[in-house]
Simulated assay, not measured.
Amino acid sequence: MAIINLEYYSEVLGMNRNVKIIYPEASKVSGFKNTDIPVLYLLHGMSGNENSWLARTGLDRLVRHTNIAIIMPSTDLGFYVNTTYGMNYFDAIAIELPKVIQNFFPNLSTKRDKNFIAGLSMGGYGAFRLGLGTNHFSHIASLSGVLTFNGMEGRFEENPEYWGGIFGTWEQFKNSDNEILALAARARKQEEKPKLYVWCGEQDELFSGNEFAVSELKRFGYDTTYEKSSGTHDWYYWTKYIEEVLKWLPINYVQEERLI
């Protein structure tokens, strides 16, 4: 397994960007084939960047025996959307980045059924926004994600500079593609809907929103795996449940042997 830091110029954003990559190693993976390698795009939360998952979890250890590449980009604080201030993070990550990755790593799969996306908190929102807003990913996972802003209208009023810069006014946000459930309602008409995974801790302030979002996603006809447990908005739980995501994905996930 190799950990690669790729710096590239983003034509969409007009600046250099960094993306962290975990790349499988033939000698560590049973039955490794150096073609059509499955890919997981893994997104950070509001306080993070492309280094967060590696710095805060044992992710590299978890996948060292599994044939999967993990791509970890950064959206800064831009919520993975095309912001009103002109930074088009959605286009940069959903459309441009897969082409950049394919250019440098042509043996990674471009097939929908071998491309997946997941994230935590803001990244959980981002995974659903990018996943439902394209037809590139067959599986989408959220850990403690902001899957609905219902009841959070006050944030737009309290900090209009930030939230307005990201989404515009509350009225502009509602029923737009940036509202996950509105997007999901429209995307359910796709012939092949992605499979969904959601986890949220019961002590998390986002828990009730996740409960509501999951009920709506199921009502829309999405194949949704929902897990909940005692837990807060914390890396302890995200480290635990990213392994559950890996088990859920249609890959031959090989668990690391644990020392007793």
Rank of each mutant, 00 (worst) to 15 (best):
L147A: 09
S142D: 08
G133P: 12
K174F: 01
S144M: 08
P160L: 01
F128G: 09
N178F: 03
Q172I: 02
M152N: 15
V146A: 15
N175V: 05
R129L: 11
E171D: 02
G151I: 11
W170E: 11
N135I: 08
N175S: 05
F156V: 02
T169A: 00
L147Q: 09
F167I: 02
I140Q: 07
N178R: 11
T134K: 12
F167L: 01
F167P: 03
N150V: 08
F149C: 05
S144G: 13
D177H: 02
W170T: 11
V146C: 15
E158S: 06
N150W: 09
N175M: 06
N178K: 05
I140F: 10
S144R: 11
I166V: 12
W163Q: 01
N150I: 08
E157F: 05
N150K: 13
S144K: 04
T169R: 01
G126Y: 05
W170F: 13
H139L: 06
Y162W: 03
F173M: 03
F128R: 12
H136K: 15
G131D: 11
Y162D: 01
P160K: 00
G164M: 00
E158L: 14
L143T: 04
L130C: 10
N178D: 15
S138G: 05
G133W: 03
D177K: 02
T169V: 02
S176W: 07
H136Y: 11
G126Q: 05
T148Q: 11
E158Q: 14
H136N: 06
K174T: 02
G154T: 10
I166L: 03
Y162R: 08
G168P: 02
N135K: 14
T169F: 00
N135F: 03
G165P: 06
F156K: 06
R155D: 08
E161D: 14
G133L: 02
G165Y: 04
F156M: 06
L130K: 08
G126V: 04
N175A: 08
R129V: 11
Q172N: 04
H139I: 03
G126W: 03
P160Y: 00
H136R: 12
N159A: 13
G165H: 07
W163R: 05
L147P: 14
M152K: 14
E157C: 05
W163M: 00
G133Y: 03
F156N: 05
F137V: 09
G131K: 10
S144L: 10
G154L: 08
G168N: 01
E171Y: 05
Y162N: 02
I166W: 00
F137S: 12
T148I: 06
G126L: 06
G133A: 03
K174H: 10
L132D: 04
L147N: 10
R129G: 12
G154Q: 15
I166S: 07
G165A: 08
W163C: 01
T134M: 04
W163V: 00
M152G: 04
I166N: 00
E161W: 08
G164Q: 00
G154N: 14
H139M: 08
F137H: 14
E157S: 07
D177M: 04
R129Y: 13
N175C: 04
S138N: 09
S142L: 10
I140A: 10
V146F: 09
R129F: 07
L147R: 12
N135Q: 13
F149M: 15
R129C: 09
F149N: 05
L143M: 15
K174W: 01
N150R: 13
E153V: 03
M152E: 13
S144P: 15
I166M: 13
A141P: 09
